[in-house]
Amino acid sequence: MSRKVTRREWSATLAGAASLAAQTPPAPPQTPEQLLEVARQQARRNADLLTKHKLPPSTEPAFLFKP
C-alpha cells in the first residue's frame, strides 16, 4: 500500500540529505577528465597569483642569452 508523502516530509528529507552532503568531503577526482580539470584549476590559480604580483617594468626574466 502506498502512502502519499507530504510536502513537509519531502522538505525534511531533502534538508537532511543536503546536510549529510555538506559533512561528507568531496570525493577526490577519479577520471582523467576530472584530473585534467583539477590540474587546469591549479594552473589558473598559479597564473592568478602571478598576475597579482606587481613588478617594475624593468624587471627582466631570470635567464640570460649568451651568444
Partner: peptide, 28 residues
C-alpha cells in the same frame, strides 16, 4: 594519473605566465 594530467596541462601555460614567473624569479 595526476602526473599525466599535470604534464598535459603544462602545455597550456601561457608565455606571459611563464615569463612572469621568470621575472619574479629575478626578485627571488
Amino acid at each position: 594519473a595526476r602526473q599525466i594530467a599535470g604534464l598535459k596541462t603544462g602545455l597550456e601555460i601561457l608565455a606571459k605566465d611563464y615569463l612572469k614567473a621568470m621575472r619574479i624569479r629575478s626578485q627571488v
